[in-house]
């Protein structure tokens, strides 16, 4: 009995299809099975491509696991969001303080430019006109006047359109006054940006600049307090030949 069964199986196995022992129906069934396999394979590969579809077919404990995983991931991402928000806040703060520092530096630069005379300045101020038909005004008187203006709070001063800066000097040559190498002719016009009223009072005090000037013969002065005066920029910047910033200061 077993022998026959074995024989049967062996025979079935040993007969190659090529010999034509199979019926066409069996062959068709084989082909159909192959097609079915391909169909199932693709279907299975396609299934579970998206999470929603996969969730439908998962078992309960797997679902719990997936849920736990997603919760952990969500927590982590939430933490990351918080961290990034904090970082962003920090950057915004530092950007703001950078902006403030930049603003104050810009203001400082502006001030230094005004002091150095590289910028024209306009604003409230006084105009002082000194008539001197007999050329009685000396450089000393002019220096005193400028000193009086500065003392009263003038921020920028020009004499006959020559901007006065830290290195300005008054000299005389050929019986003419010279400021920073440019000859001055009467009338001398001093323009100062600053508190007009204070400057006006300071010039008018007894024994002050106006008194000293007018003590010379034929000298007359007029002081006008104006809402807007213009002080021009220096024609060429001051250049330093001998001096350099000392190393200790330049490092700041």
């Amino acid at each position: 009995m077993t022998g026959t069964a074995h024989q049967e199986r062996t025979r079935g196995l040993q007969r190659p299809t090529a010999t034509g022992s199979s019926s066409p129906w069996l062959r068709a069934a084989t082909v159909l099975a192959c097609a079915l396999l391909g169909f199932l394979l693709v279907t299975q590969l396609r299934a579970g491509e998206d999470l929603g579809e996969r969730l439908d077919i998962e078992r309960e404990q797997d679902l719990a696991q997936i849920l736990a995983d997603l919760s952990t991931q969500s927590d982590r991402l939430q933490e990351e969001v918080t961290d990034l928000r904090l970082t962003l806040l920090g950057f915004e703060n530092s950007a703001q303080s950078d902006e403030l520092a930049l603003d104050s530096l810009r203001r400082r630069l502006q001030e230094l430019r005004v002091l150095a005379g590289t910028l024209a300045v306009e604003g409230e101020g006084v105009e002082m006109i000194v008539e001197d038909p007999d050329t009685q005004v000396t450089q000393g008187l002019l220096v005193d006047s400028v000193q009086e203006l500065r003392d009263a709070g003038a921020e920028a001063i020009a004499v006959n359109d020559v901007r006065l800066v830290a290195s300005s000097s008054f000299t005389s040559g050929n019986r003419r006054l010279v400021v920073d190498g440019k000859p001055l002719d009467a009338p001398y016009v001093l323009i100062a940006v600053g508190p007009a009223e204070t400057i006006g009072k300071a010039l008018a005090i007894p024994g002050g600049a106006v008194d000293s000037l007018e003590s010379r013969s034929a000298v007359t002065t007029t002081v006008n307090q104006l809402a807007v005066v213009n002080v021009p920029a220096r024609a060429e910047p001051v250049s330093f030949v001998y001096g350099e910033p000392s190393p200790a200061d330049s490092q700041q």
């Binding site: 062959r27 084989t30 082909v31 159909l32 192959c34 097609a35 079915l36 396999l37 391909g38 169909f39 199932l40 394979l41 693709v42 279907t43 396609r46």
Partner: peptide, 13 residues
Amino acid sequence: IALLALLLGATLG
């Protein structure tokens, strides 16, 4: 033929 059938089934899927 079986291989072709396999591919046919896959295409169908």
